[in-house]
Amino acid sequence: MQGADDIEARLREVSSVPETLAASFSAFEVIRLAARAHEDQVPGLFAAFMTTADAAVTGREALTIAPSLGACSTAQVSGPGPAAAVDAITDDLARLGGLLSDRLTRAAALAQAPADKAACEQAADAARQIRDLMARGHDDRHLR
């Protein structure tokens, strides 16, 4: 998925709260754009992608109020790339959601400012929701 690898690599490298906030902000936007781009592709996953995009907006809006967000520049966010296999997209988004949740939970623990802490916690909740929405078992029940 276009943009996911870059943002994932960046999330793995963050060490400070401002860096985490900036990378997470961009990650939520990557997730939103990807989910929006794929929501109509498979009717059985319409609800999953729509809800994922909604959670990404919630996470991004939660970070908007974090005072430390301005201290670090954010990355370029690309629009939706060429249509990829839906399986790959859901896997990428689930992985990214899990990583986001992990980094934001850590940042919440490190944050000094209560507003940073609250923003990280709320955004971590949204990231966990994304992970849970996109995580898929691999049985025959799923639609193709």
Binding site: V42, G44, L45, A47, A48, M50, T51, T90, A94, D132, L133, M134, A135, R136, G137, R141, H142, L143
Partner: peptide
């Protein structure tokens, strides 16, 4: 549920 792992045939 809306989650992808609960998607199924109609």
């Amino acid at each position: 549920t809306p989650a992808a792992d609960q998607a199924s045939d109609t």
